[in-house]
C-alpha cells in the first residue's frame, strides 16, 4: 500500500468528496502531505476498482466516497505492518 492509498483510506473513515478529501489529508498529516489531485484521482479509481472504497452518492457533478469493510481490513493490516516496522526500527532510530 502506498502512502497516498493509506491516507485516502484513513481520511475516508468519514464520507467525503474529492476536494474535501485533499483538505482532510492535509489536516490529518498536519500539512506534511499536500496530495495532488492527479494522485488522488489515480488512487480513488484504483481503490474503487479493488472495492476498498465505494461511491455513496453521485449527482453527476460530485461523487461522495466512503471506505468499505475490505478497505478497513486492508487499512488495519497496513497499520499493523507499519507498527511492527516502527517497533523493529526502534533499535536504531529510537533515540
Amino acid at each position: 500500500m502506498t502512502e497516498a492509498m493509506y491516507y485516502v483510506l484513513l481520511a475516508l473513515t468519514q464520507q467525503a468528496h474529492g476536494y474535501k478529501l485533499m483538505r482532510e489529508i492535509t489536516d490529518l498529516t498536519h500539512g506534511r502531505l499536500n496530495m495532488g489531485p492527479g494522485t488522488l484521482y489515480g488512487v480513488l479509481a484504483r481503490m474503487e476498482k479493488d472495492k476498498l472504497i465505494t461511491v455513496e452518492e453521485d449527482d453527476g457533478r460530485r461523487k461522495v466516497y466512503s471506505i468499505t469493510d475490505n478497505g478497513k481490513e486492508a487499512f488495519r493490516k497496513e497499520y499493523r505492518r507499519l507498527q511492527n516496522m516502527v517497533r523493529d526500527g526502534a533499535i536504531l532510530g529510537g533515540d
Partner: peptide, 14 residues
C-alpha cells in the same frame, strides 16, 4: 497550486 502528482509510486503505477 499543488503539483498534479505528488506521489512518484502512484504515478509510476499509472
Amino acid at each position: 497550486a499543488p503539483e498534479l502528482h505528488t506521489d512518484p509510486d502512484e504515478l509510476a503505477y499509472e
